[in-house]
Design a protein around this nucleic acid. Sequence first.
RNA 1: GGCCCUGUCGUCUAACGGUUAGGACACCGGUCUUUCAAGCCGGCAGCAGGGGUUCGACUCCCCUCAGGGCCGCCA
Length: 505
Amino acid sequence: MRPRRGPGGGGTERDTSMTGVVRTRIAPSPTGDPHVGTAYVALFNYAWAKKNGGQFVLRIEDTDRERSNAASERMIFDSLRWLGLEWDEGPDVGGPHGPYRQSERSELYRQHAELLVERGGAYPCFCTRERLDALREEQRAAKASVMGYDRHCRALSPAEAARRRAAGEPHVIRLAMPTEGATVVRDLLRGELSFDNTLIDDQVLMKSDGFPTYHLANVVDDRLMGITHVIRAEEWISSLPKHARLYEAFGWEEPVFCHLPLLRNADKSKISKRKNPVSLNYYRRAGYLPEAMLNYLALMGWAISADRDEFTLDEFIGAFTLDSITLGGPVFDLEKLTWMNGKYMRKLAVPELLARLRATVLSDEYLLRVLPLAHERVDKLEDFVEYARFFFVGEVGYDAEARDKLVAKKRTPADTAAALARLLEEALDPLLEWNAANLEQVLRAFAEAQAWKPGDLFMPLRIAVTGKAATPPLFETMEVLGREVCRRRLRAAVELLRSLPAPTA
RNA sequence: GGCCCUGUCGUCUAACGGUUAGGACACCGGUCUUUCAAGCCGGCAGCAGGGGUUCGACUCCCCUCAGGGCCGCCA
């Protein structure tokens, strides 16, 4: 059976099902820092493509206009390249199935959504946000077993719906799920997964801003880009039936689905920045070697043999098979990663070690940023290393004076800890561009909002991020230290403050 | 709460009906060494529980329990 043509009859659709070529993709959303989970999934996709002589595609899923940003996209490119997971097709390298940025493919999604509406596989929904919020609230309050959209607008006649659309009424397009029976989808690792259709709500496909949701964009793009194996994280399993329904509604053959286990915190919850460093920038700054990182990640759910855990990327590709992945959610163990990194470090010849240092912590680029801040504050060259120590180490300790001033003036350790924790979460984490001007702005605003004198807040902050009471200007210093280092040290400071006894008087 | 996924040492994993259940991290000893690491040697530690199937179950089936994910006009 031949797959049906897509809408418009344009030449964009390619059928690779008969060619036997393996095509995989990593499809990160450019919101925030490049995530270790992205690297994990990318590695397995990369390996599978390479093993089969196929292509590995990078697609940017930036359909969330609120949160997507260019800085984040750049960091994704940098991080994946740092790891050596080069893509064959992507936004920056091009390729025959572009564009590879979803925000540049709007017309494609619109066409496909329209096609579905014509066929009755999707329908316009005019429900307001208020109504949906109220509905959700109601369901929550009633402890309803089935949550989700109540299909209110599905009852509208096509003519009525078309009239209201023509009148310019704001709306979304929703997928019309079957209202009975079950959807069965095959996962390569888990076999047949069955979902009761009555329990699946009518997912939004096109948002009212004209952008698609993940569900539509992902299915359309995987199809048009000829992706043969959708290897992604387990968290997507629950939306699998919606995706399967989309393939069916379009008349397309499904790709192979393979859901990888989720990386976990020590308490087994989905890995998160509150409990683990999750930014690839962190690992790069801390001086983990990319080859060690890849090796360690490959160990999450896979083993090359019973008594070996060190191997190269090429060896991984050679021995890897998708069906040999283990399903238990692996705890991401920094300690073992660090051990493995040590192994790789020791294997390096000294000139190579020097090269690595010169490329990272001791790069001219970095030194050129640190030097201006230390310049006028040292009198002899030999004082430099001592003075600028905190620019080069991981964790910092506090001397007596610093420890003393880590607790804000006229505040308790607990209050200071709470303030720094909030500061991190509410001011620093959401900050898009990490630079001195922005830092000053959000930090001053935060102090004001918390009714703290700026100075009272900035000293504990200074000590937390540098370990010292006397440093170069705080905001410039934080800019150079970078988000990762500041976040890590702030967390350590908060922990220390929490362990400090409350003042007796 | 509903649906779905998962379940071997504390952690990452090997085993694919027959093994004293193997390796690695961590931890604890020993060894080497001017010190500290690294290295080497050794030790501690596990099949979630209960039913089946089978001559025989970590391996297959069922139930229970436990953990996790999802339930957004986020991905």
